[in-house]
Design a protein around this nucleic acid. Structure first.
Lengths: 122, 122
DNA sequence: AACTCCCCTGACAGAAAGGTAAGTACCCTA
DNA sequence: TAGGGTACTTACCTTTCTGTCAGGGGAGTT
């Protein structure tokens, strides 16, 4: 009943890790934040082509709850909010690296479609 | 339009890998098949507590399509179907290992709930 | 004065994922 | 003859996820 959503009973470690990464944009957010150390909301939005503001905030909030992302609000007048990875976020990214390599292989192997981002990022 | 479902344009390798693992039971199926080399349908069903037959076949079919799982049908009279991992399935499992370790850490770190399976498997 | 930018929030709706229950067709055991 | 096991398939329903749209409140830009 506590609306805390992300802690179902897990069946294995992969389960517990996937719960935290699944979400259409979370992999990318992780990637962006890892690459740039610190990003503002609007920068992330521009980096994820097609994301809606709602989904972006939603995902960021969940990742914050999950201890992956740090959110720093500057009480300035055009509001400024900076996101960065926590230690856990960084280790998660490391753990994700082999999976990313496998996925890139799969894309190559099967000649799957990619969006322009991949060219710069892979 | 070709109903081939699992090959959306990907934004990065993680994306392409997650597409293939996301699905409530796929991690477990991978784990089971890696541990036992070969499993029959009913063995898998018993190994994944709570899975419905529908989901199990659905996931197995998708994983077959994705080249992770090999399906061998023996035209016998009590039907016999054996599932095993392909080479790609095995490498995916390897790539998943660090993620599984990270997830297991997370579970420990935050004292999250697990189902009985973890005790034996982690 | 009007517009845009910033970082959201909430209502609503459609899509996708997952679950339930039943049926199929054949065999073996009790 | 009844029940159980084998490996599914199909129709239907519920739950979860994602997207669309509108607004908010102040400050700089034209």
């Amino acid at each position: 009943m506590a609306r805390a959503p992300r802690n179902g009973p897990y069946i294995c470690g992969i389960d517990a890790a996937l719960d935290v990464v699944s979400g259409k944009w979370k992999g990318l957010i992780l990637w962006e934040l890892d690459a740039h150390r610190v990003r503002r909301f609007a920068e992330l939005r521009r980096a994820l082509p097609g994301v809606s503001e709602k989904m972006l905030t939603q995902h960021l909030r969940e990742m914050e709850q999950d201890g992956l992302v740090h959110r720093e609000v500057y009480p300035e007048v055009p509001p400024r909010v900076e996101y960065s990875l926590t230690e856990h976020g960084r280790t998660l990214n490391l753990a994700l690296a082999p999976l990313g390599a496998w996925g890139a292989d799969r894309v190559r192997r099967e000649g799957l479609a990619t969006t322009p981002l991949l060219d710069a990022a892979s």
